[in-house]
Amino acid sequence: MKVLLAVGLLLLCFSLPSVARTSERTVLSLTLTDSSFLPAELTVSAGKKLLIRMTNRSNRVAELESYDMKFEKIAPQGRTISVFAGPLRPGKYRFFDDYSLSGYNGWLTVRKE
């Protein structure tokens, strides 16, 4: 019984920090279609950590990338991926599908709080 209690407390200790970190993030949703990102422009407050979830609804493999926000991740067709960014200063940050021949891109505007 003591072993089970110790294991339970240990698991609780390791899970609490991740819950706290998740609640401090701003979650943004994005969809890639065969013709563009939806929405093509996102807006957040400065100083926040970001979690960007992109669902690839296009008919091909894509890669969500941003030189400005320093991430890149392959997005298989029909799947949702997550990337992390921030905290960011006020400004405009570009993201794009690196595998797109048409140059699909979007913008994240970070405004002062």
Rank of each mutant, 00 (worst) to 15 (best):
L4Q: 07
L9G: 13
L10Q: 07
L10K: 06
L11S: 11
L12E: 11
L12T: 14
C13G: 13
C13L: 15
F14S: 15
F14C: 15
L16N: 09
S18D: 15
V19S: 12
A20E: 15
R21Q: 13
T22F: 11
T22H: 14
V27N: 12
L30T: 07
L30I: 07
L30N: 04
T33W: 05
D34E: 13
F37G: 02
F37A: 03
V44E: 09
V44G: 03
V44Y: 08
S45H: 07
A46Y: 07
I52V: 12
I52R: 07
I52M: 09
R53F: 02
R53V: 05
M54R: 05
T55E: 13
R57A: 09
R60T: 09
V61G: 05
V61P: 08
A62F: 01
E63C: 03
E65T: 11
E65N: 08
Y67I: 14
Y67D: 15
M69P: 00
K70W: 03
F71V: 00
E72N: 10
E72L: 06
K73Q: 00
I74W: 04
I74S: 03
A75P: 06
Q77P: 05
G78Y: 05
R79C: 03
T80L: 02
V83R: 00
V83K: 00
V83I: 02
V83L: 00
F84C: 01
F84G: 05
A85C: 01
P87T: 01
P87Q: 03
L88H: 00
R89E: 13
G91R: 08
G91D: 09
K92N: 13
D97R: 11
D98C: 06
L101Y: 10
S102R: 14
G103D: 03
Y104R: 14
N105R: 15
G106I: 04
G106R: 08
L108Q: 06
V110W: 01
R111P: 10
R111F: 02
R111E: 15
R111D: 11
K112R: 15
K112M: 10
E113Y: 09
